[in-house]
Nucleic acid binder design. Structure first.
Lengths: 308, 308
DNA sequence: CCGGCAAGATGAATGGTGCTCATGTTGGTG
DNA sequence: CACCAACATGAGCACCATTCATCTTGCCGG
């Protein structure tokens, strides 16, 4: 008779809690306030007569009871995901096309795992990457040469919709013995005497140049490389500095190859969107691909933020 | 972004729907109105853009989409059950005692499967049946010789609580060529010239005698047997008539051994309760045992009804 | 063919509860 | 010691699942 109180929302909360390591962060993930989660968790704990995690620690540590419920959450999440995919296939059939245009180099870091996961779930969808870098990814969509484009800005286009993926912060990296390496925040002026190492793409696609340096009229020396690891090595060898997503450099920071600093007082925040033809936006495998990207990215990349 | 709408309540509804075969019946199972379920299902169907079952048929038939969601419901239900049992053990430990006093012969039909299931989930709980039939099952509880008693009435006792299990209907069975076999309803007078075959228990425990015959001052010839199958055989051999739960005789009706009729215009409805010491009522393994009994019984016995 | 009945659908109204807002409490830090 | 971030708490509100009342549909017997 004792109604079970447990609802899917509790399990979602628990997943977010485990992934973010804090109540406030988890609240953002599930689009609720910190207060809401606090109430929710309290009710759960009272219902089961067990505490679920220790709050006084950062990141929070789950108790055995919390771990058990987290396991349940993962199971249920997986079951529901599988079921809803099956329903979608029942409705729309198995097949389709998904050709992805990518305009950012580092994006491959998260795109590959997401594509792997997607391929397992939708074996009949033809998955492809539109090779090379393109000035006009939206054009590729409208001319039917791509079905989805990863872009940094959601500028309105008739017949095209933009779906938010996630937000992240760009940091500047420099060699350990660089004169400015110890300073926590770099300003535009600090770049003036440096060599800026970037991917070989137009300046309009480099957030640092577009949002910070160009407005300040600063034009440092330049050098390019195709590979993230090569850029890191150049920076470590004091050949220059680079601006990269935090999640892309974190592993190298931890191994002590380079040091990183914030760009500008508030930080340089970038965003990623998926652009698709409006007609395709409702397709189940499209939605599932986007959900997979978000889920995998939030699960594996540090420091991401949700977009409204 | 498309929120998933799906909630546990939908899955519970689906389970009830599959078990009962009708929306109205399912509504009773989940303690809601028919209207509520109708709305609920409609929302689900609209959300997935798929119909879940055909309504115009009795019992209703699930579509492939409905079947898939039903599978999900079963998975999730099992996962949650397992998790909550683990939490309960975390809270209260694994061990305990559960000695069951039974005062109704047919009860073993559903008690055995429930006990099997329970034993798997709570291997450390000492499970036992208090043998023999007892005049005062509540006394057994209070003197500590049993921990749970299956009883037909919930009469208040200090220190003892009664938890409803289920309701069912008693029917009278007679040989096919019995003069009254074709008549759909038997009244008290119809028993006057018969031999009534029953289990060898006091009359106070025979609902037919207690509620129908005794009030009408009717006292038919009597004969007893310990075994349900023996009673059925005696009836089929025209040695007399018997009153048994519908779910106990249904298999024999289907095989055509005997025929059955309603007792009294409104039917003779009986109920079963579990009596336990109030102190024990909160114990997780007790609650789980009761939940198991209800679940198994509703899933396997025909014609049960829920008790408020 | 027509009432009568059971099962389900639908629309409007409402009550419960899960959320937000505002504020209090705690623990770590310079 | 003051400050800040993170979490807890209480009050009030808004949404939405449920109920109630009514309508529609299908089915059966006469």
């Amino acid at each position: 008779m004792t109604q079970s109180l447990l609802e899917l929302r509790h399990l979602k909360t628990l997943l977010a809690l485990a992934e973010t390591g804090s109540v406030s962060q988890a609240a953002k993930r599930v689009f609720l306030t910190q207060s809401a989660l606090s109430h929710q968790i309290k009710a759960l704990e009272a219902h089961y007569g067990l505490s679920l995690f220790e709050r006084k620690t950062q990141p929070l540590r789950l108790t055995p009871a919390g771990e058990r419920l987290l396991l349940l959450a993962r199971e249920v999440h997986a079951s529901i995901g599988a079921a809803e995919r099956d329903l979608a296939r029942l409705r729309e059939g198995e097949a389709g096309e998904l050709r992805i245009a990518v305009e950012c180099h580092t994006c491959f870091d998260w795109l590959m795992p997401a594509m792997d996961s997607f391929r397992r779930h939708w074996p009949a969808v033809e998955l492809d990457i539109v090779s090379g870098f393109h000035a006009d990814p939206v054009g590729l969509l409208l001319t039917g040469r791509a079905d989805l484009a990863i872009v940094a800005e959601a500028e309105a286009h008739p017949g095209v919709t933009h779906q938010p993926l996630f937000g992240y912060e760009m940091v500047v990296i420099a060699a350990h013995d660089h004169p400015l390496a110890a300073q926590p925040v770099w300003r535009a002026e600090d770049f003036a005497a440096e060599t800026l190492i970037s991917y070989p793409v137009p300046d309009t696609m480099l957030d640092l140049v577009r949002k910070i340096l160009k407005p300040a009229g600063i034009n440092p020396a330049r050098r390019t490389s195709e590979l993230t690891i090569a850029i890191i090595q150049l920076v470590a060898s004091r050949r220059g500095v680079a601006a990269l997503p935090f999640w892309a450099v974190k592993p190298y920071l931890e191994r002590g190859y380079v040091s990183a600093a914030r760009i500008g007082e508030a930080g340089l925040h970038s965003e990623l969107y998926a652009a698709l033809r409006s007609d395709d936006a409702k397709l189940a495998y499209m939605q599932d691909f986007l959900a997979t990207v978000r889920e995998q990215s939030f699960a594996t990349l540090p420091g991401l933020s949700v977009l409204g």
